[in-house]
Design a protein around this nucleic acid. Sequence first.
DNA 1: ACGCCCTTGTGAACGTTTGCACAAAGTCGG
DNA 2: CCGACTTTGTGCAAACGTTCACAAGGGCGT
Lengths: 265, 265
Amino acid sequence: MSRRPAPPRGNQGIPEATIARLPVYLRVLYACGEQGIATVSSEELAAAAGVNSAKLRKDLSHLGSYGTRGVGYDVEYLVYQISRELGLTQDWPVVIVGAGNLGRALANYGGFASRGFRIAAVLDSDAAVIGTEVAGHIIQGADQIEQVVAQHRVSIGVIATPASSAQAVCDRLVAADVTSILNFAPMVLNVPAGVDVRKVDLSIELQILAFHAQRRSVVRVSEDGRPSYRRAGPADQNGDAVATAGGVVPAAVPGNATQPQVTGS
Amino acid sequence: MSRRPAPPRGNQGIPEATIARLPVYLRVLYACGEQGIATVSSEELAAAAGVNSAKLRKDLSHLGSYGTRGVGYDVEYLVYQISRELGLTQDWPVVIVGAGNLGRALANYGGFASRGFRIAAVLDSDAAVIGTEVAGHIIQGADQIEQVVAQHRVSIGVIATPASSAQAVCDRLVAADVTSILNFAPMVLNVPAGVDVRKVDLSIELQILAFHAQRRSVVRVSEDGRPSYRRAGPADQNGDAVATAGGVVPAAVPGNATQPQVTGS
DNA sequence: ACGCCCTTGTGAACGTTTGCACAAAGTCGG
DNA sequence: CCGACTTTGTGCAAACGTTCACAAGGGCGT
């Protein structure tokens, strides 16, 4: 925002892109542990996580030198280190606002309660659902936000309300000292500096998919349509461009003859 | 991930980062249209979308020169252009696999049906829910995947199953010629090249939030704890690092004295 | 004890994304 | 019709992220 001429930037230095991948590594490591695997090489771990092995090593190197050359990484030890770095060794109470279809789905989501996160409360403003039970939690009124947040020391809030009330809920959460918000409402939240907002937006993801799908069907017209459908390494799952190696789409919709009216002029 | 010495790449040249933001602009533009606003400047649009105005202009410039200098962008025209670029002017049938809490939430999600996407079918493998209705759709058996995909020319599939069956469902979708997959299951899907996978993962988002929250609480110990809570411009909502406005973040975390037990050895 | 072989950790090159700053280009009032 | 003002579109440089390639380091067989 404001100019930073010579930012001292005490940023202790883990790149944001790395942070976003650590949870994926962590999940794979848990799976390894459950399989009884004691050590993994960067190559194996990278393949399972769907990334380049050099990237994985660089990511892990930001945490420290926790690997053993010639062997790999100790699964259990690495799990601990990543967990600590992400702050998962402490308990994070979470409040879910909005007990509609989505809110209930979230409350029932198993991976929620596990690994450090704990649902402190589920709130809603609809009197019809207040008092009913979801995933072992009695739904409380939305007017309890401040009290619940203070009582459980909540610092993470999940907004699963309609877009129309998302900003109001967000404001109340922020006023109650919640500094991390996960927003499922399809809108851009306005928050003060120092509050961290992440959004999960089905509609946006679908539109990105549609773009690639459309492009694929157009590109297919080009030469060299080798229909090789070989099972390659896992395509990048982090939103990078599609590989479009041998894109064999049937005969879907070329009809863009609908040249539109230019409204202005 | 084979080497690509000289990728012919018919990439017509819209950066991936831009594609990811276009849906946000589109949503803001729709909101403007509903408010009766006819034209917007890049500054206004950028503020509403939570991005830098220069970035917005550069993004839009990739689609063409659709603005008018000294005035701004015509809302309706820009909506059309972005929609066309994203491929939203055509109809995208979508199949949802998994009718649990999440699948039902998705099926009921309003923004789904609107703007180009249409639910072709909702499937599940649980005999207890097959035949019941969700959001106007009779839930069909998961063994109908191939038939439904072929019949409705589905090219986008949404996986809302437990992680344990996600890969199997994915394989069947891919075999049935679905080339775009939105994965809600908490796992990395393995797909052939040419298939586009995007993932939405609550657990990962929470862990990223936890990391920032943890860092913030450590940083707070530092000097200059000015509790200025002024309402600033919308903090970046795309997952970038938290602004932490006054955050000078100096001597954070020297305490790595807690050298843990090395399990192996 | 020694040397081979495997894997990590990282320097350096490359590509992508962001943000500034400004010229080009249009509108609008007089 | 003209000049002042506003806003777009973009060249450029810095920041950020990815990938390659390889030296450093450690285990393991002999």
